[in-house]
Design a protein around this nucleic acid. Structure first.
Lengths: 223, 223
DNA sequence: CCGCATCCTCATGGATACTG
DNA sequence: CAGTATCCATGAGGATGCGG
């Protein structure tokens, strides 16, 4: 019988290399086996507003090594939380339904960690699209009728925050520019949503286009 | 939510060694800077039912290296999520209020990962006290009046599941043994709470002491 | 025993260079 | 653009030691 080649052995060993697992019969532990690795939840956060390409992921996630991003995307695909799709524009990565369902625990964890933002931005990196996760998370439980739509513009990036009787939602690429748009710095928007400052203080610190009544309905009346 | 809690912010900032941080102005990323390291959330899970000693933590968390546990507890104390207390019985580690507030994101993540339990226990480790996190998480939204208390006994460990109009809660060390106690294997209890099996199927698979009506009010009527 | 600290090994993460 | 390949630094896991 012929001895197998060393290259095959390496491959086999790579494949059979058991991934590091907690080995616990616990939903939390098994979740962490899937999403507990470094960068994984941040990749999910990037993809929540919609599919992205590899290079866009890499530039949004300042500091991630390219091999690590590739490795994570492979693992996440194998675990069923992202899908690699080949579209006309090229390769895009999008969340599966199960992956998108991570929004709830991620919102909860973001709410928990909001006090950590009190130290300010410093020279941390920031992407406006992250606010599409943060704003609905911070406004959980807020409901208004009839529905209100306000634009939030940060660093020239426009998103729409909509609150109806169901609760808050945030979108990118709105069909049309809302009548009321608040343009402000990231920390101002976050402090407003977290209830740390009032609408009037936010208006003084930022710029507003349209009237502030819609803002008050979302950030003041609703709570 | 409270916006600025300067004491906790100072604690977080006074970490001695420069920790590996994502460097992002995002509540989720900053949360992961604090609780994203391996074992951290599992240590929190252990401490949620109540303070524990070092050696009990170590034996509950099969596979954690002793130096790692010590290091994590130091970091978690510096980050303001655990407190090291010296009691008559010795050194105990307990959660701060902020640390205990991790229950919500952890419940959400556990709910997300519950499908991962479908493969069964295998030879994974298991601690009955983990169910005090899982059961209320899986029964979220369930409310009954008047209140029901049922005992859940797994591996000889008895806990009490109480559901009232506020929602579900689970305790250890009950004042008195509930009139109805379900003794069953971990997977049976989980499947019951997750809605994968009915009360009658669970009763067939496990043993019941008392009548099943209380169980049905929690696991059937409530949903 | 309990509560760690030290030492060692190897897997994982991070930075950079390179390629189809 | 979408990744590999490579090398080095760091972190995790396991055994052992050690003072209280």
């Amino acid at each position: 019988m012929k001895w197998i080649e060393s290259s095959m052995v390496e491959k086999v060993n790579q494949q059979s290399k058991a991934p590091r697992t907690y080995g616990q019969f616990c939903a939390l532990a098994r979740s962490l086996d899937v999403v507990g690795d470094r960068w994984v939840l941040l990749i999910v956060r990037e993809l929540l507003p919609g599919p992205m390409r590899y290079s866009d992921l890499k530039s949004s996630l300042a500091g991630i090594a390219t091999n690590l991003l590739a490795s994570r995307l492979r693992d996440m695909e194998a675990n069923g939380i992202v899908e690699r799709r080949l579209e006309e524009s090229g390769v895009v990565y999008g969340l599966t339904d199960w992956g998108a369902a991570l929004r709830e625990p991620m919102e909860a964890l973001g709410r928990w960690g909001t006090p950590l933002l009190a130290t300010g931005r410093g020279d941390d990196s920031f992407q406006p699209r992250w606010l599409t996760l943060a704003l609905p998370a911070l406004l959980q439980g807020v409901a208004v009728a009839p529905a209100v739509e306000v634009g939030i513009e940060v660093d020239g990036f426009l998103m729409v925050l909509r609150v109806d009787e169901e609760g808050p939602q945030a979108f990118v690429r709105p069909d049309q520019r809302p009548r009321t748009v608040l343009a402000a710095a990231p920390d101002v928007v976050v402090a407003l949503a977290a209830g740390g400052i009032t609408v009037d203080q936010a208006l003084a610190a930022g710029t507003l286009e349209g009237d502030g009544r819609a803002l008050r309905r979302v950030f003041a009346d609703g709570r």
